[in-house]
């Protein structure tokens, strides 16, 4: 109960800050904020796979890129307004996510991850090489936005609204019985199967939901950058939501959002003052992996548990027990 109260207070404060921020920020800072808002949706969509269902995909950026291209391609080839094109983004990404997920989910665990790497790179290469459709490496830029969305502040509020809708939908889905079932699958696939849960079907549903909202985030990106380019689909871009989630914490809904704020601000600060962002990011990641594997959210909770009264933890978190031995019954004894 108390946690829910603090969580809703946290969201309220975050919403207030997000709404009032444009009053204080200059245009460059507005763009930083927009990139954070987009990353928050991208990373939260990824956490449906990683944190809730326990699937490590290297293809998530591909669906993000597909979302961005859905907007720009509809604009270039069909003459659609970006607003109409945006509706296409989650649909296209989700549809391709469903089909490719069907293929990738023939395997499990590591081999699933490696299949997503191959599928993601294949999608990247389509964007990179199919010049007739995508203009290849040049990308598509200079998309005309509706007049109302041209000022940075308006565009920011537009993106903020889109992010709020996405987070609201995902939050409902993850708090629902469906979300609870995904977490159970993450904890023990075999046991979930014995309860009559068709695990693959749920994994595919989670994959499709996650990819659809990656497309949603990609569609937001197309508004932000007024364009799209192949690198958005590359597996190295998939590292963004993974890192964001890891920094914030993958065992909570807010983790990826907090991670997006931290990573976005860090990236802005470092790239403005120092040439070498990767070395900073790598070091931060390594520090989190080694010393705070639950991310910021878990770290703060633990601090609160030490400092605050009445909170009790019987044992330190055990991050290792995802790797349950194959459930009983799968080993025939007699």
């Amino acid at each position: 109960m108390r946690r829910r109260l603090t969580a809703s207070t946290g969201w309220a404060i975050a919403a207030l800050v997000a709404l009032l921020a444009p009053l204080l920020l200059n245009e460059r800072q507005m763009f930083v904020l927009m990139s954070i808002v987009i990353l928050a949706v991208f990373a939260t969509s990824y956490n449906v796979l990683l944190g809730y269902t326990g699937m490590v995909s290297f293809a998530h950026a591909a669906y993000y890129g597909i979302g961005a291209y859905a907007v720009t391609l509809a604009w270039v080839h069909l003459g659609w307004s970006p607003l109409a094109g945006f509706l296409l983004a989650p649909v296209a990404a989700g549809a391709i996510g469903y089909v490719t997920g069907l293929v990738a989910l023939r395997a499990t665990r590591l081999y699933f991850s490696l299949l997503t790497l191959a599928i993601g790179q294949l999608l990247f290469l389509v964007a990179f090489q199919w010049r007739g459709l995508t203009r290849g490496d040049d990308g598509i830029f200079g998309m005309q936005l509706p007049l109302l969305l041209q000022p940075a502040t308006n565009r920011y509020y537009f993106l903020l609204a889109l992010a709020a809708i996405a987070l609201a939908i995902l939050s409902v889905a993850m708090r629902s019985p469906f979300g609870a079932t995904l977490r159970a699958i993450r904890e023990n696939r075999d046991r979930a199967g014995f309860l009559g849960i068709k695990v693959k079907r749920y994994e595919l549903a989670a994959f499709t939901l996650g990819t659809a909202f990656a497309g949603w985030a990609g569609g937001m990106y197309a508004f932000f950058d007024r364009g799209s380019f192949p690198l958005l689909l590359d597996w190295t871009t998939s590292a963004d939501p993974i890192f964001t989630t890891l920094i914030g914490g993958l065992n909570s809904f807010a983790g990826p959002v907090i991670g997006a704020v931290v990573l976005g601000l860090l990236r802005d600060f470092v790239t403005r003052n120092f040439l070498y962002f990767n070395v900073v990011l790598g070091t931060v990641l390594l520090a989190i992996i080694l010393f705070m594997p639950g991310g910021i959210v878990e770290g703060v909770r633990r601090l609160a548990a030490v400092g605050g009264p009445g909170r009790r933890r019987t044992q330190p978190e055990q991050p290792a027990d995802r790797e349950q031995p194959a459930a009983a019954g799968t080993r025939s004894k007699s």
Partner: peptide
Amino acid sequence: RAFQITSIFPGL
């Protein structure tokens, strides 16, 4: 069926 090896959802 209850299992010979304990099979629960440890993180829940």
